[in-house]
Simulated scan of single mutants.
Amino acid sequence: MMTVLVLNAGYEPLHTVSVPHAIRMLVRRVAVVHESDGTELGVFPRPKVVRLLRYVVMKWRYANAPRWSRRGVLRRDNHTCAYCGCHATTVDHVVPISRGGARTSWLNTVTACGGTSRSCNARKGDRTPAEAGMALRFSPRVPIWDDLSQVTQLSR
């Protein structure tokens, strides 16, 4: 499904929405910044980027750190395995949960390649990286909101 970038009144990226949602926004009077190849949906042009006409204050977003999520860990680490540098598809706990590691902590989870018996996630198993003889290429950290934003990913 095609997504539409939503900009604040000051042209800061806010988030992305679906095309039907963007059309509903057009009905409520937002400005189209960039149109898609001239196609129209009813009386409205098919938007790629829309801009709000009123400024939206987003204090809530920067007051607290983002909540942990699997998708967030993959985005934070840019889908790169923390052990070998290959494409990562899964999340690994640095200190295994069975050893007292936190299940949903930004500081205890990294991305890892997975899916086969030779993957880093399978090789490490239920051990710490030191016990498995595997070094982390980067340390886990608590991300900022911009690290997790799909809008930031699109603009790179």
Rank of each mutant, 00 (worst) to 15 (best):
F138W: 10
H15Y: 12
P45F: 02
V33S: 09
L52R: 13
V4S: 05
Y11L: 13
W145P: 01
V110D: 06
V142K: 12
S36T: 08
A122F: 12
V27A: 11
S155V: 15
P20Y: 07
V57L: 03
V49Y: 05
D92R: 09
G10F: 03
N78W: 01
A63W: 01
N78G: 13
Y55A: 09
R24I: 00
S36L: 14
L154Q: 12
R46G: 00
L107W: 01
F44Q: 00
A88G: 07
V19C: 03
M2P: 02
A31Q: 14
R46Y: 00
N121G: 01
V95W: 03
D146V: 13
L14M: 15
F138T: 03
S155A: 12
G114A: 10
V6Y: 02
S119D: 04
P47T: 08
V17M: 09
S105R: 08
C113E: 04
S105N: 11
D147E: 14
R51C: 12
R118C: 01
G125V: 08
S105Y: 10
P47C: 07
A122M: 08
T80E: 12
A65C: 00
N8T: 10
N108K: 05
A102V: 03
R29P: 00
T116R: 10
Y55W: 09
G10E: 15
A102Q: 13
K48N: 06
W106Y: 08
G125F: 04
V94A: 07
R67E: 13
T16Q: 13
R28G: 07
V94F: 02
I144V: 15
P20F: 06
L14R: 10
L7Q: 04
G72P: 05
R28T: 08
E35W: 02
P96V: 07
A65N: 10
L74H: 05
M25V: 00
E40C: 11
R103P: 00
P143T: 08
R24D: 12
C113L: 04
A122E: 10
N64R: 15
P140T: 06
L107P: 01
H15K: 15
K59Q: 12
R127D: 02
L52H: 11
L41W: 09
T116K: 04
T89Y: 03
N8G: 08
F138P: 00
R54L: 03
R70T: 11
W60V: 03
M1I: 01
M134A: 04
H34C: 11
V151N: 01
